[in-house]
Amino acid sequence: MNDMRIADRAVDTHGIRIKASAVQVYYGESHAIKDVSVDILDKAVTAFIGPSGCGKSTFLRTLNRMNDTIPICKVQGSILLDGENIYDKRVDPVQLRAKVGMVFQKPNPFPKSIYDNVAYGPRIHGLTRSKAELDGIVESSLRKAALWNEVKDRLHAPGTGLSGGQQQRLCIARAVATSPEVLLMDEPCSALDPIATAQVEELIDELRSNFSVVIVTHSMQQAARVSQKTAFFHLGNLVEYGETSQIFTNPKDPRTESYITGRIG
């Protein structure tokens, strides 16, 4: 009996990539995230859902210290990536963001070539020693982002010349080029049409085999389609966190129920 329990626990801890405990975020006086604790699993897609302004983006940004760039923003509590506190003084935020990559709502390729967009991260982090090695990373990143076949003949054309959906996949390629462990995505499809959205969703599902993916989405159907775990935020609180299938068929909290069924809460 005892042995079984120990074995179960070992498997569980192995699956956790990020462990956030008692996280508080303040913007000046305003309390934006209230005592949120959550385990983000490896090789799984976790969706953050909730009404506008509930703190999804704020909490997502705590996971790679993107909030550091907002002067009035104060973060408390602990966030462990692979057991290490990312807010430790010895952690270099730039290095951290190579490990915890981010894709934003509006595709924001640099005004450079497709190649240079993807090569940017590996270059500044000095991840490669030769042109051939860099070429390899660019190709494999574009393949992981399901964009290679569409751009392989025009790698030196500007990234800004691609369609919206292609630009977003380029940003995903740029994020995966530094071999991150976690990919954070903040409403990555909200500027895309349904076909491009479907392609990005398909890609997210593939990325899951190599990364831990956290996606903020205002589309409940998207959360239901792409994620294995769903976290529902409301007024800065994490109201409910569980298996996506459970959240969408049998939520435990009446606030979750009201929100996902489109009722006035």
């Binding site: 409940m220 159907q221 239901a224 969408f248 068929t249 049998n250 939520p251 979750t256 129920e257 996902i260 069924t261």
Partner: peptide, 9 residues
């Protein structure tokens, strides 16, 4: 409508 939760049930 893509019903969810109690609506789906």
């Amino acid at each position: 409508r893509a019903p969810t939760a109690s609506d789906l049930r």
